[in-house]
């Protein structure tokens, strides 16, 4: 049961949050006329790393804000939390920001 530090509300139990999958996925614009392959890549293909994963969560039962987390998918350790639009640090496995 994760303890997630919402950048606005502080540490809260995971049941207040909802997971939104991989972060920092670039959405192809209409102007760039993405080919089917590029569109499928955006839509369906994921890094799904065994290890550090940058993902987005929303504090659904709290402030309602989306934010980013860097989490280890094996140990579930959360090594970095940052707001939407904020540049993320260089968090690597085991290092806290």
């Amino acid at each position: 049961m994760l303890l997630i530090t919402c950048p606005w509300c502080g540490p809260r139990d995971e049941i207040e949050f909802r997971w939104g999958g991989e972060s920092h996925i670039r959405r192809p614009t209409l102007q760039s006329s993405p080919q089917d392959e590029e569109w499928a890549d955006y839509l369906f293909y994921r890094k799904n790393p065994k290890g550090l994963h940058r993902e987005r969560w929303v504090h659904e039962a709290g402030c309602g804000q989306w934010f980013n987390i860097a989490r280890d998918t094996v140990s579930h350790e959360i090594v970095e939390v940052y707001r939407m639009g904020e540049a993320h640090g260089q968090a690597e496995r085991g290092k806290r920001p």
């Binding site: 999958g21 890549d41 293909y45 994921r46 799904n48 790393p49 065994k50």
Partner: peptide, 18 residues
């Protein structure tokens, strides 16, 4: 469960989440 990991070794991604 580990399909993405092996695919990564072979140099491609999959539409998979574990």
């Amino acid at each position: 469960g580990h399909s993405s990991v092996l695919a990564g070794m072979a140099g491609f991604r999959l539409p998979v989440t574990s």
